[in-house]
Structures are given as C-alpha cells and as structure tokens.
Simulated scan of single mutants.
Amino acid sequence: MKKCPECGNPSYDGAPVCGNCGYQFPKQKAKAPKKEDIFQEKPKTEKKTNDEGTLTIIKRKKLVIGIILIITLIVICGIVLMGSNHNTSSSNNSNPILQSNDLAEYKDGDFSFKYPKSWQEVNGSDEEHSSAVFFKNPENTTIEYYNITTTAKSLKEITQQRITHAQEGGDYVELVETITVDGRNSSNMLLENANGDYTRYISMFSDGKLYVFKITGDAENSLTSQDIENAISSADIA
C-alpha cells in the first residue's frame, strides 16, 4: 500500500491516481531484469581420473605382447633344433646294421637277406627241415632260416597250422600278427616253449613256397634285437 502525498489517503501500490483527491501518482520505472551473459566463459573444472591414458595402455600391451612373442620364438627354435638333432641321431642310429659296411649276404635261389658279419654260421639240426641254415649272434640267439614248398593256399592257413602244432606240443602262443616284409604280408608269431625258451617265426609266402626265419633264445627281447630286425627287413624274394 502507498499513501497519497496530498491527502494521505491510502491507495494500492499500482493505483495511477489517488481515489480521494485525484492526485496522479508518478509512474515507477521498471527495473530491467538481470540478464546472464550466455557468452560469458565459465571457469573450467578439470575432471580428475585415475584411468591411464589409452596410448599408455597400448604401449604397455605392445611391450607385453612383444616379450611373449620373443619367448615363443625361442621355445619354437629350441624344439626345432632338438627335433632336428633327434632326427639326425635317429637316422644315424636307428638302423646301424644296414648302414654298416660290415655285412654279409646269404643267398638261396630266389631268396636273400643281409646279416652282420658278427653272426657266426653254426651247425644245427632241424628234423623237419634238413636244408635249414643256422646262425648265432653275439647275444647267443639262434637264427634259423629255411624254405619249403607247401600245398597250403594262404599264409593264414599256414599260420593256423603252426598255432595248432605249437599248442599240441605244449607251447604257449603269445603273439600272432601280420607284418610287412619285402612289400608283402608276412606272419610274425611268438611262442613261449614248454621248456621255458622262446621261439619266433617270421613266415613269408609266395607262389606255393614258404620262407621262414625261426629265431630261438632264452629271453623274449633277445628275439627282437636290432640286428635281427635289420636282417628280417633286408629279406628279398626275387
């Protein structure tokens, strides 16, 4: 409320004249509202963070990856070198007999095989095969070879006959398998004899003819020594 300066009559603030005496109140100046300068630059607040910069992380990861790659390459090179040395060693030692010049050759018609000169040809007897030849190696294992003409129709039939014969004689059949000798299927049979010794038969069959290695020893592993395996693998039917 405001009072008229002439008569003192109260009037409301916005009245233009006094309602009592007609005094005209002076017009009030409108106050301009306070404006904010939208272009005023506000102070910047720096955002604090504990995160590492992307570039730093990338550099660190590159360093770790580089180290891993170097270690991997070193391991691979080591494996390759070890494999190379192993292969070289294997190629030099896996077949020492066949790579040696100290070999003799046995030849009987269309059949032949090579054996180390350390084998001694010995006298032996085989009641069923009078033409058999006998050798002994340094481990005192006997290697007998013979060939016969047979009416059997297949290697399977021959193998079955030998199994039956062995069992009738009290021998125990430990192993019967088919192997490859001179590029053809052959029979490999291992027996534990009734007297405690072991006998191994390697049989090759071709055109009605049977070629046999009969190997006898007092221990099972003596029948599969490297020199014996090399002699068998060198067998050739012309």
Rank of each mutant, 00 (worst) to 15 (best):
A152Q: 08
K47R: 10
Q24S: 12
E128D: 14
T151S: 12
N195K: 12
D182T: 07
T45A: 04
P43A: 10
V181K: 00
A235T: 08
P10C: 08
E6I: 15
I67V: 13
K156P: 03
M1N: 10
S91L: 10
R200V: 00
D110K: 15
P26F: 02
S89F: 07
S233A: 07
N195R: 03
I79H: 07
N9R: 12
E46L: 04
S131I: 02
M189F: 03
E36N: 14
M82Q: 05
V181S: 02
W119H: 06
K107Q: 06
G169L: 15
N95Y: 07
A32K: 05
E127N: 15
G109N: 15
Q24A: 15
C21T: 13
D207Q: 11
A15L: 12
E46R: 10
G170M: 14
Q40M: 07
I97V: 09
K3V: 14
I179D: 03
A15E: 11
M189G: 02
K156I: 11
I143N: 02
Y106A: 03
I74V: 15
R200A: 06
N123A: 08
M189S: 12
K214G: 01
N101H: 10
K42W: 06
V181M: 00
D227P: 07
T180D: 00
D110N: 13
K48N: 10
N87V: 11
L81A: 15
Y198G: 06
I97K: 01
F113A: 04
E168Q: 11
E6K: 13
D218R: 14
S233P: 01
K209F: 00
E46T: 09
R60W: 01
S206N: 12
P43Y: 04
Y145I: 11
T159R: 15
N20Y: 01
C21V: 13
N147M: 04
V17S: 15
S154P: 10
I148P: 00
I65T: 10
S186E: 02
T54N: 02
N20W: 05
N193F: 04
A194L: 09
M204T: 03
K59Y: 01
I57V: 15
K114C: 01
Q120G: 09
S91C: 07
N195Q: 05
S225E: 03
V17W: 01
S225G: 05
G14F: 07
P5A: 13
G208E: 02
A235I: 04
S130K: 15
E220K: 14
I58K: 10
N95H: 11
S112T: 08
Q160G: 13
G8Y: 01
E128F: 04
V122A: 02
N93W: 01
R200H: 07
V17K: 13
D236K: 14
S90W: 07
K214Q: 10
K61E: 04
P138Y: 09
N147H: 09
